[in-house]
């Protein structure tokens, strides 16, 4: 779904670009609908890029899907930021902590 917004925006831009090219070929001033089409294309791509930065959700070891409380960005305060790791049971540094030489036997 998210990628289709990009696709529609790109198609609009491509079409308006080609129209503008043809208009210039005959030396006519480009009309309002070409400008509007390109502006709508720009708007769609920008909205698509904003939607695409959404936070991913995580799967715990008990097969539960855990979502970030904020939809797009991450909390910067320590007290808010560590809550996701606590509900998930891992930290951001889990990759390093569970390296073979680091495991406490």
């Amino acid at each position: 779904m998210k990628q289709y917004i990009y696709l529609v925006g790109l198609l609009l831009l491509l079409h308006s670009g080609y129209s503008s090219f043809e208009y210039h070929k005959f030396g006519i001033e480009i009309s309002l609908d070409i400008k509007l089409e390109s502006l709508i294309g720009v708007l769609l791509i920008i909205i698509g890029s904003i939607i695409n930065i959404e936070n991913e959700s995580f799967l715990t070891i008990d097969n539960k899907v855990i979502k970030n409380k904020a939809k797009y960005l991450k909390f910067i305060k320590m007290s808010d930021a560590v809550q996701l790791g606590e509900s998930l049971g891992v930290t951001d540094y889990e990759e390093y902590n569970t390296r073979l030489p680091f495991i406490n036997i």
Binding site: L13, I30, S38, G41
Partner: peptide
């Protein structure tokens, strides 16, 4: 980044 590139394309189209 995306916005600036796409705005560049639009301003080129509108010449």
């Amino acid at each position: 980044d995306v916005a600036s590139l796409v705005l560049g394309v639009a301003s080129g189209i509108m010449s």
